[in-house]
């Protein structure tokens, strides 16, 4: 694995240019351009505040918008992952370079987009006067989420090269994943009402522990299940290594399949 990271490091210019390209293309033909990455989370906060004002929903606005913005990072990566290899077939069939740079730069572009959203969110959280927790853990949580996003993207990007109906499978999986993750509900729903083995399964979903950890450090929403959060984090990194392995095992055949 080490020599692969060396390869990527030596091609870091390409990684940056591809990240830049991905961001540029996203906002290329829009009037407001890059401002959308700031406007989108802002409008999300506004819409949900109206929504929560109109109906009774058992979640506070800061918790809800924080969760949704964090979930969106994963959701955007999963959507883009399908085309990360297939959509770049012209590059893959034309030149030799470490293919992992394609999904990596895609996740990188989404990570930058996420950081912009996160900046808007932070300003909102300051205004809403929430009580922050141990912010020192934030980079570690973000890195773990990014590793999960990259691991999943590597699996999905590879699968889509060989099986073109990956897209349909993914849309079902993402819908189920969304509701299995405490995005629009609190983890207490499961922790208070279900036996231990269900709780373990609940946290075997890496996004559960990641979200719980984010809420803990950003909103001081204490859950006190350190062991279960550690399980989630381990699964996240496990998926990262699994995706890395699958991708590189399949890489030599990309040129033939595209």
């Amino acid at each position: 694995m080490g020599h692969r990271w060396m390869d990527i490091f030596s091609r870091r210019e390409l990684v940056w240019i591809l990240i830049e390209r991905n961001l540029k293309i996203r906002y290329k033909s829009s009037f407001l351009g890059f401002f959308w990455s700031l406007l989108a989370p802002l409008s999300l906060i506004v819409v949900y505040s109206v929504f929560l004002g109109l109906i009774r929903f058992p979640m506070s606005l800061p918790v809800l918008v924080t969760s949704i913005i964090i979930w969106q990072f994963l959701a955007m990566c999963m959507g883009d992952a399908l085309q990360s290899i297939l959509g770049n077939a012209n590059l893959v069939t034309k030149a030799a370079f470490p293919r992992v740079i394609l999904p990596l730069s895609m996740v990188g572009a989404n990570a930058i987009n996420f950081l912009f959203s996160f900046a808007v969110l932070s300003v909102y959280l300051l205004i809403a006067r929430v009580e922050f927790g141990a912010l020192i853990y934030l980079p570690g949580i973000m890195l773990t989420q990014a590793a999960l996003c990259l691991g999943m993207s590597l699996i999905i990007g590879t699968a889509n090269v060989f099986f073109r109906d990956t897209e349909h499978v993914l849309s079902v999986v993402m819908l189920a994943w969304f509701f299995l993750t405490p995005v629009i509900y609190g983890p207490e729903l499961v922790l208070d009402n279900f036996p231990r083995w269900v709780q373990v399964l609940f946290f075997a979903n890496p996004m559960t522990g990641i979200l719980v950890a984010y809420r803990e450090v950003l909103l001081s929403a204490h859950v006190g299940e350190g062991g279960l959060v550690a399980l989630s984090f381990s699964v996240a990194w496990g998926i990262f290594f699994l995706g890395w392995g699958i991708f590189h095992a399949a890489e030599p055949r990309f040129g033939d399949e595209l």
Partner: peptide
Amino acid sequence: AGFHPDLSGRENVFLAGAIMGLSR
């Protein structure tokens, strides 16, 4: 073939260069 239609000629030149391993 590696050009992206939405990017300008200038941007594509730098992208193509990076793919071939040249720095900016």
